[in-house]
Amino acid sequence: KDIVLACPMNMFPQAEPSKTPQEIWEDFSLSFTPAVREVVEFAKHIPGFSALSENDQVTLLKAGTFEVLMVRFASLFNVKEQTVTFISGTTYSLEALKGMGMGGLLDTMFEFSEKLNSLELTAEELGLFTAVVLVSADRSGIENLNSVELLQESLIRVLRTLVSKSNPCDASRFTKLLLKMSDLRTLNNMHSEKLLSFRID
C-alpha cells in the first residue's frame, strides 16, 4: 500500500514505494525541521520569551508550532483557485488532495485561511498576532503560569493598540482576530488526530 503524507510541509507527499515506513517518516521529519527551527528563531525574538523557563519555552513551542505555521503559511492556500502550494513548490488541487485522504482538515484549513486573509493584516500585525498565538498561557504543562500570562497579556495589549491604530473605524477587527485563535486551536486538534492516525497506520 502506498504511503501518502499530504502535508504542505512535506517535500515528498507521495513516498517512493520502495521506502520503508520508517524512512518515509524520517524524510517527512527532515522536510518540516527547517520550518520548526524558524518558529523557534521567531520565538527567541519575542521580547520576554527567552526570560521564561526553558521548560515553559519548550512547552509553548511544542503546543503552538503547528498554529504558528498555519498562520505563516495561510497564503499557500489559494481559496479562489482551490489549490495548495507545498513547500516543495508543487501546487495541488483541492480535489487531488482530498483523493490523498485530506478531507475535513483541509476544508477547515481553507476556511481559516480565507477568514484570516479577509482581515488584511499588515506584516507587523501578523507578526504580533503570531506571537500572541505562541505565548498562550492555557497550554497544558506550563510551570510558571504567572510569567506566561503576564507576557501574553502585554502582547495582547500591544496587538490591540496596533490593530486599533491601523483601522480605527473597525472596532470589531481586533475581536475577529482574537477569535481566529479559537479556530487555530480546533485546527491544531484536528491536525493532531490526523498525525496520530498516520502513526497508528
Binding site: 521529519s29 527532515l30 518540516f32 525541521t33 527547517p34 520548526v36 527551527r37 523557534v40 528563531e41 527567541k44 526553558e54 519555552q57 519548550v58 513551542l61 511544542k62 503546543a63 508550532t65 491536525h191 493532531s192 498525525l195 496520530l196 502513526r199 497508528i200
Partner: peptide
C-alpha cells in the same frame, strides 16, 4: 503514541534550536 508532538520528534528539534545547536541537514 498519545502525543503527536513526540511522534514528530518535535521536542528534540525545539530544544536543539533553542540552545542554538542547529545541526545541518545531511545531503
Amino acid at each position: 503514541f498519545s502525543d503527536p508532538a513526540s511522534n514528530l520528534g518535535l521536542e528534540d528539534i525545539i530544544r536543539k534550536a533553542l540552545m542554538g545547536n542547529l545541526e545541518e541537514r545531511p545531503e
